Simulated scan of single mutants.
Amino acid sequence: MGTVPGQPTFSTVTLAGINVGGKKLDLRPSAFSGGMIVDCGTVITGLQSTAYRALRSAFRKAMEAYRLLPNGDLDTCYNLTGYKNVVVPKIALTFTGGATINLDVPNGSLVNGCLAFAESGPDGSAGVLGNVNQRAFEVLFDTSTSKFGFRAKAC
């Protein structure tokens, strides 16, 4: 866990990988080099360009049974009304140090039928871990030891 220079109230972590539907995305560590600000006040998670595009592609492929809808703010949205059993792929985020969180399905990966991720900027810039991905987790910030953690099913 780190902090953002000039913003000591923001804690940062570094992603090491993303899995969609049980398959690890082919991403180099440089895709996550800008780190991720952990922010419970931001709704949608912002990923750096390479990581976001790989996630979006894998998610859309897994959701191709459903019609992709245009949306002004988010680019991966679906109208899921009328379906009895919607199958949403599981998304897991792995951080440096090996900690992995399996996002709640669908509430930890979708918001209003849209993928709860967006492109935050170029590789090397900071991303933001938003509150949709933090749902169903207790989040620990131990600034005295620079530790950060999630505890599943705590809420």
Rank of each mutant, 00 (worst) to 15 (best):
R56A: 15
V86Y: 05
S146M: 08
V132N: 00
C77H: 02
A16W: 00
C155Y: 15
T143E: 11
G21Y: 00
S109L: 02
L27V: 08
P122N: 12
F148W: 00
V132Q: 04
L129K: 10
A152Y: 10
P8S: 12
F32W: 01
V20P: 04
A65C: 02
A51E: 02
D39M: 07
G121L: 03
E138Q: 12
T81P: 08
D39V: 03
V13R: 00
V13E: 02
N112F: 09
I101R: 04
L115E: 05
T14N: 04
A152S: 08
E64D: 15
G113V: 06
G127E: 04
L115Q: 10
R56C: 08
I37M: 02
L129D: 00
D104C: 14
G17S: 15
L80K: 11
T14C: 01
F59N: 11
G121Q: 12
R67Q: 15
L93W: 00
F137I: 07
G149V: 08
F117V: 03
V139H: 04
G72L: 06
L69P: 01
G35N: 00
L80A: 07
F148Q: 03
S33G: 11
I44R: 12
S30Q: 13
N131H: 05
A99V: 10
V43G: 02
A16Q: 14
F150I: 01
N133C: 15
T14L: 02
L80T: 09
P89Q: 09
E138K: 06
P8C: 09
T76K: 05
D73T: 15
D123E: 12
A99F: 10
A152T: 10
I101P: 14
S49P: 03
A118Y: 07
T94F: 01
T81G: 14
P106L: 02
G72K: 10
P106E: 13
N19A: 14
G72Y: 07
P29H: 07
R60Y: 08
L25H: 06
S125A: 13
A16H: 01
V132K: 09
C77Y: 03
I91W: 03
I37S: 04
K24V: 12
K61Y: 13
K61C: 06
L15M: 15
L27E: 14
G121I: 00
